[in-house]
């Protein structure tokens, strides 16, 4: 059974007197363990698609089955629960709470969990998530004490904490330089390969899309291409080929190596 199953998904906005057809009937299935890159120019409908898959928005018509459950007709509060339990978000702008330690940022989704989770349990799980992204030793740093790549890795840890069915990454490398981008992609690839986590990556950069196993391209509200990546870029290998990272304050920027 696919993790995501979308049938004839349509989304129409009304802006003034004009109807904007953002999605004009999209069908797609995503299997467990896939690393799907979603590309397309701005206005192509990929953002709307992403918002609906992330349960931030509801389709005008069509069906969206997540983990065997139809989420296309759920209420706002039910969608909030689905976002909390099944979806992990990673944003371009990291969206970490300022003046709040990394570990507290990671714990945040647990506060909104529908089951009560004790403080000690929250802490344990947050530490585990930070360990996965290789930032355990920085768990008490505040976002302004972390580099962009580190901040994004904290955001990934936060997305992982509830063991979601899918990880949705919206332009996660948009604010990062090349080297840091590769580092972040390495984290995603490891999560995908080692932990079999399903990842949806939205990007307008084709070279970033190549880190996935499959790429779909949007244009004018339709999927215009859907193909397996024959040549997959591997971030681990590229990092090894790059010159060693600069040394800052005596500590190397961790490269997710364990």
């Amino acid at each position: 059974m696919p993790v995501i199953s979308v049938r004839d998904l349509k989304k129409t906005y009304v802006v003034g007197d004009i109807q904007v057809h953002a999605l004009r009937g999209v069908d797609v299935d995503v299997e467990q363990g896939e690393f799907l890159s979603v590309t397309g120019p701005s206005g192509s409908g990929k953002s709307t698609f992403m918002h609906i898959l992330g349960c931030l928005d509801r389709p005008t018509s069509g069906r969206y089955i997540l983990d065997g459950q139809d989420v296309s007709t759920m209420s706002r509060d039910e969608l909030a629960k689905v976002r909390n339990h099944r979806i992990g978000f990673v944003f371009q702008g990291f969206n970490l709470l300022s003046r709040t330690s990394a570990i507290e940022n990671v714990e945040l989704p647990l506060l909104y969990s529908r089951q009560q989770i004790k403080g000690s349990e929250r802490h344990k799980r947050a530490r585990a998530a930070l360990e996965i992204v290789g930032l355990l030793e920085r768990s008490h740093h505040h976002p302004n004490q972390l580099s962009g790549g580190q901040q994004q890795r904290v955001a990934i840890a936060r997305a992982l904490i509830n063991n979601p069915s899918i990880l949705l990454a919206d332009e996660p490398t948009g604010n990062l330089d090349t080297r840091t981008s590769i580092e972040v992609m390495d984290v995603f690839q490891r999560l995908n390969i080692e932990r079999n986590i399903t990842i949806l990556l939205i990007t307008h950069e084709h070279d970033i899309a190549e880190y996935g196993t499959r790429t779909i391209a949007f244009r004018d509200g339709h999927i215009v291409s859907d193909q397996r990546n024959t040549v997959r870029r591997m971030a681990r290998a590229e990092l090894a080929a790059l010159p060693p990272p600069e040394i800052l304050n005596g500590s190397t920027v961790a490269v997710g190596a364990k």
Partner: peptide
């Protein structure tokens, strides 16, 4: 605003 958006994205309901 962004913080509120984030909190909602990770599962906060309007009521929260």
């Amino acid at each position: 605003t962004r913080e509120i958006g984030l909190r909602m994205a990770i599962g906060a309901r309007s009521g929260d």
